[in-house]
């Protein structure tokens, strides 16, 4: 499974996806979001939707000194929280800036490819694609 940005030009910047992501992690607000909508240099230029693109050879996993990020068969990573020391190398390694940070737990926030955010996008900007067989372990990614 991977989350795809179908058409960022349709994004209105409501950030409903970010609030949804936090809610699926049994929280409220924006603290646990693994997706970010930001302006592309002022609202007049539209928006950038920052999501984990589920790399097949993820730099975040290679940057992790503790092997806490386990590469999934279909791309992307799952987080083994008990191994993570909170060094933040994964954040620095991600050039799309899709590794977010959980200040409460001092650990990365990794997209779990559940597609809950897409359900709250009224404009079809994002979509979950692929099949569900490799979802195992993803539930541990956040929270």
């Amino acid at each position: 499974m991977r989350l795809e940005v179908i058409d960022a030009d349709k994004c209105v910047g409501c950030q409903s996806c970010m609030f949804a992501c936090t809610r699926i992690h049994k929280d409220a607000g924006l603290s646990k979001t693994c997706i970010k909508v930001r302006s592309a240099g002022g609202m007049e230029r539209g928006f950038m939707v920052v999501t984990c693109i589920a790399c097949y050879d993820p730099p975040c996993a290679r940057a992790c000194p503790e092997d806490a990020l386990i590469v999934r068969e279909s791309g992307g990573v799952n987080l083994n929280k008990s191994k993570c020391t909170g060094c933040g190398n994964c954040v620095k390694s991600c050039i799309v800036k899709a590794v977010f940070w959980d200040d409460d737990n001092n650990k990365p926030l990794i997209c779990r490819y559940c597609g809950y955010c897409a359900k709250y996008c009224p404009y079809g900007v994002i979509e979950l694609k692929g099949d569900k067989k490799d979802m195992k372990g993803a539930d541990n990614n956040v929270g």
């Binding site: 910047g13 409501c14 007049e44």
Partner: peptide, 16 residues
């Protein structure tokens, strides 16, 4: 040319 929204408003009434 574009429609925008306030944060946390899916309605997007801002017309540009």
């Amino acid at each position: 040319g574009k429609r925008l929204a306030c944060a946390h408003c899916p309605v997007a009434c801002i017309h540009i």
